[in-house]
Design a protein around this nucleic acid. Structure first.
Lengths: 233, 233
DNA sequence: TGTACATCAGTGAACGCGCGTTCACTGATGTAC
DNA sequence: TGTACATCAGTGAACGCGCGTTCACTGATGTAC
């Protein structure tokens, strides 16, 4: 199994069909939601026996896990790309937040799969942890950039951190190897929950009848959170 | 059907069994989640024929709707009660936010039912709109109280509202018959999405590994949003 | 290069299960005279 | 107060459906000599 060896026909076929299965699964997801994801339906759509799926995924849960990991990574890629397009922290922040929302609107069921209510009876395995961390990491990294330029300047002092929260924020800082102060970490986490709260509310229909369409509110909130976090224009 | 007429035995039995069905349904919800809610399982648990449920709810969807309305109202009651216990805006705000979180932690599946990903194939009917609005109304009312006392004092100016957002905020103000300025409305909506974003993240497992346990962060965010909205201590 | 064997992909039938909903029915409760 | 009729609650069988997973199998692809 030397890494440079070219793939056999069998390996190529396998990779291709694996991704076709996932592709069909995503299509089903888009139409019926995660709970109704059916191996038989996927097989039917692919014109193969339902038992054949088991050559590729040992169970429905494993397929779900793969879809979850893919979704996190797809979103992560989109946000990475958006972030890399800008150097100035405020612009980067804006681009990242917008990228999250746009990805969510373009992939509502995949968004629901990863940020909606957990599928009951399904426990997300360890494999999802790292991909799930990608978006908050990019956001934190944006804040770190501003901090390193000495331009991090929160709009108002805000309450002191409790000892527990400070310890948690310090632990996060240590984990991502930055010297961001705990207060900045806490602000970033708050903005992170704000961002996804807003998007979930939009997607799940809670904003109908108040801020609907939601883009103006979204944009406003993104700017507000940027100021709050300290990314001045 | 004069309102003062006392109920017949039949009517009493009907009301009782209706609520027993919902009670059992909630128990099922707590164990398996909304999608796995099964009329047959409920009937089984109640020791009756599955077809008997149809004397009480014309379909599974109608039962789901009833549960959704009940959940919104149960949460609404909890938040109302918490809010009424305090006169000072900051304390009221804190009590309401905390009440939402505590209700959510105590009823995770009911929370997921109303704030999680929508059940696919199920369209929430009009009946859910008013109950769903109760929590944001209490939050807005708290802000209004502070404003009427002349004590509304946001921690920082924040970006100007775009014309569309201003119009939406004004429409909300008109709908709830208050003279709160559009800026205050927008801040309250932002805090509202923040509150539920945070709680959803906690419940759905996104905070594991960063701010976990989440209460210190939650409390901190509540105070921060209070300052942001303008409810100074 | 050719052959023998091992590995893997895909099949189709089967197991065992649960679901929502309908329907004709029995028997109990309520209502009008 | 008693009786005849209408209303309603609850039953149990049936319809028609889909699901995840297993298993023994055939036939194709890959590997070692």
């Amino acid at each position: 199994m030397s890494p440079s060896r070219s793939l056999t026909a069998r390996e190529r076929a396998r990779a291709e069909l694996t991704s076709e299965i996932k592709h069909q699964a995503r299509a089903q997801l888009a139409e019926h939601g995660a709970h109704d994801l059916s191996l038989r339906a996927i097989a039917r759509e692919l014109g193969m026996a339902s038992s054949a799926i088991y050559r590729y995924f040992p169970s429905r849960d494993e397929l779900l896990t793969a879809l979850i990991v893919d979704a996190y990574n797809d979103l992560g890629d989109a946000v990475d790309k958006a972030g890399k397009a800008h150097r100035k922290p405020r612009l980067r922040w804006r681009a990242c937040c917008t990228a999250v929302r746009e990805w969510a609107l373009a992939h509502p069921q995949e968004y629901a799969l990863i940020y909606g209510s957990p599928v009951p009876g399904y426990a997300a395995p360890q494999d999802t942890v790292a991909p799930a961390a990608r978006v908050p990491l990019v956001m934190l990294d944006t804040v770190r950039g501003a901090h390193e330029d000495g331009r991090l300047d929160p709009a108002f002092p805000g309450p002191l951190l409790s000892p527990t929260l400070k310890a948690q924020a310090d632990a996060v800082a240590a984990a991502v190897e930055t010297d961001l102060p705990a207060d900045a970490i806490a602000r970033a986490i708050l903005a992170w929950t704000q961002l996804f709260g807003m998007i979930s509310f939009e997607l799940f229909g809670q904003l109908v009848g108040s801020v609907d369409p939601s883009k103006p509110f979204f944009d406003h909130a993104v700017e507000t959170m940027a100021e709050f976090v300290g990314l001045r224009a």
